[in-house]
Design a protein around this nucleic acid. Structure first.
Length: 596
DNA sequence: GGCGTCACG
DNA sequence: ACGTACGTGACGCCG
């Protein structure tokens, strides 16, 4: 498919963060690497900067070393080079360096080459993409790890200066050397466009989102924590009473012994290590004893308290009073982002407590949160990729897709679809995206694998394009050894020809899911880059603050809301031109619960 | 550090 | 005959 206009509207010839023109550049490329007191770019301090403008020579400028002759005035001097749009920047994990420099008031600009991202696009299945690993893989260059250099020192600032120089300068030079070989590989693999038009510009967007952070109401969460503390105490007493003894409720091993040995309940599923006590198992057991239901209550409360309510206030940044997550661009095998420290992509939404937790995420005084989420994005992408007539027709007509599927697979008129049938059809739709199997579907629908198989058959009879899409994807995967997204992102799937049926089938499901999930990831990344660029160019004060796979969250001055909503909706809905319309739902509110 | 569990899309 | 829904990250237990 030809998409000449796909990337129109953004190029990365300049940093979107700040415009500044410098007539000539003394050199074309600069590899650099910021050393810091820690790994949190919003809290730690720059210790020094390594620089390399050509292979063979690299420098290290100590800024805040202990027991060394520092050059604290180096930063203002380096600013001219780092902010020069005509000097391309090379580095490994540049988002970190960009954020560290921003703390010092330096707005990195210019075309960027991130060697970590290059390694990721070349092999998204790889576990990590540290400079050490990438150096070994592509240049057979072995170097000391950061850990080894740090030794027993508290921070890099304490590492003896000659060791620090060796280590840091080598990093900058290695990035410079890697750039050429990785870039060559990207061209060969046809990943150049994805790299320069999407992943590189996205670095600036993600850096800005992390920098912005999100406001939370810690007092509210702390009060909620005390309330839950009491509730958990009560639940614990009740549980010990029902069990007839005290035990560690958080130990699934101890719980298993209570349920299946002491109380003699019938054990179903097993895990590698013993009895399963998962939600599904406990729900089944709830019909026979009071204890399992109370355990489930306890677990939910405990989880939400420990993971969110207690954790979030402690993660508030001291300087900004906000939460700054880390958006990881080189983690997932499909092209999605991930979020960590804290993970803001899995904040609870279900239930009363989920609502309360989301109420704690706030807009600043005078601002409003805007949430914009793609409706049924993966099914729309499936419709596009499969060219299935029925699926395309459903989205063009704008009908409820799960109701439509229910009508099709149960062979009844749409207006006879009951909520239960719709729910079943929804599960089937999800199953298709996950690489459906009769067993998997039977488990989630609580029906026999035979009935699940029949349901799948009638789905394929009604949506034959989907079946051929799956067949074609698998066929191509088996011959080429990889699958790709609409924008050419690739994921190797070597095990698809495995003689082990389990491994082979698991790989087949990945092969089906990856083009769908990955295309959705490509799509929202394009939208993010375009929105980011326009917000700056058109002088809006609105900030993008979170991405949750199919949703973007913004913090907007109240005055801007109407205009910015139009902008966001337009850019998201037109980020890619598919054979089906893209629909974005917008919600606004003072907090994240309202803006849902 | 692996495993089980469970929060999200 | 086998063991499965796709993709993540955080928490606590246990060895």
């Amino acid at each position: 498919m030809k998409q000449p206009s796909l990337f129109q509207g953004f190029s990365q010839s300049s940093s979107p963060i700040e415009k500044k023109t410098v007539p000539t550049a003394p050199f074309d490329f600069l590899a650099f690497d910021v050393e810091a007191t820690g790994r949190d770019p919003m809290a730690d301090q720059i210790v020094g900067i390594a620089l390399c403008k050509e292979k063979g020579t690299a420098y290290y400028v100590p800024i805040r070393h202990l027991n060394a002759l520092n050059i604290p005035d180096a930063l203002p001097i380096l600013r001219d080079v780092l902010e020069n749009e005509n000097i391309a920047k090379i580095g490994h994990n540049l988002k970190f360096d960009i954020l560290m420099l921003r703390q010092e008031g330096i707005n990195t600009a210019g075309k960027i080459y991130d060697t970590m991202l290059a390694s990721y696009l070349l092999n998204p299945n790889k576990q990590g993409h540290s400079l050490e690993d990438v150096g070994i893989e592509f240049l057979n260059h072995k170097k000391k790890t950061f850990k080894e250099v740090l030794g027993k020192h508290e921070t890099f600032a304490e590492v003896p200066i000659n060791e620090a120089v060796q280590y840091a300068a080598e990093d900058a030079e290695l990035a410079m050397e890697l750039k050429d070989i990785l870039f060559e590989r990207l061209k060969i693999e046809g990943l150049e466009k994805l790299y320069f038009d999407i992943e590189m510009p996205l670095i600036y967007v993600l850096a800005d989102m992390q920098y912005n952070g999100i406001k939370i109401n810690s007092n509210f969460l702390n009060d909620l924590s005390k309330e839950l503390e009491r509730e958990l105490d009560n639940l614990q007493a009740k549980i010990f009473n029902l069990a007839g003894k005290r035990f560690n409720i958080n130990s699934s091993q101890q719980l298993g012994r209570i349920l299946f040995e002491d109380l003699g309940l019938k054990a179903g599923k097993k895990t590698k290590t013993g009895y399963s006590t998962s939600v599904e198992v406990l729900q089944q057991l709830a019909a026979f004893h009071e204890l399992p239901a109370e355990i489930l209550n306890y677990r939910t409360l405990y989880k939400l308290k420990k993971t969110y309510i207690d954790a979030l206030p402690n993660l508030m940044n001291k300087k900004t009073g906000r939460i700054h997550t880390s958006f990881n661009q080189t983690v997932t095998a499909t092209g999605r982002l991930s979020s960590s420290d804290p993970n803001l992509q899995n904040i609870p939404i279900r239930g009363e407590l989920g609502t309360k937790i989301r109420q704690a995420f706030l807009a600043e005084e005078g601002f409003t949160l805007i949430s914009a989420d793609y409706s049924q994005i993966e099914l729309r992408i499936l419709a596009h990729l499969s060219r299935d007539k029925g699926l395309i027709d459903a989205f063009i007509k704008g009908v409820d897709i799960h109701t439509r599927t229910a009508a099709e697979i149960f062979n009844i008129p749409a207006d006879s679809v009951t909520p239960d049938l719709r729910r079943a059809a929804k599960t089937v739709n999800f199953g298709i995206i996950y690489g459906i199997s009769p067993f998997g579907l039977s488990e989630s629908l609580n029906i026999t694998p035979k009935d699940a198989g029949d349901l799948i058959e009638s789905y394929f009879a009604r949506y034959p394009g989907v079946r051929s899409f799956i067949d074609n994807t698998l066929k191509e995967a088996k011959t080429s050894g990889f699958v790709s997204t609409l924008l050419g992102r690739k994921r190797g799937i070597a095990d698809i020809n495995s003689s082990n049926a389990n491994i082979r089938q698991q790989t087949e499901r990945m092969a089906i899911n990856t083009p769908i999930q990955g295309t959705a990831a490509d799509l929202i990344k394009i939208a993010m880059i375009r929105i980011f660029k326009r917000l700056i160019e058109e002088g809006f004060k609105t900030k993008m603050i979170l991405q949750i796979h199919d949703e973007l969250l913004f913090e907007a001055p109240i005055k801007e809301v109407d205009n910015v909503i139009r902008l966001i909706k337009h850019e998201m809905e037109t980020a890619l031109e598919l054979t089906v319309p893209l629909v974005v739902d917008i919600k606004t509110g003072k907090n994240w619960a309202e803006s849902k």
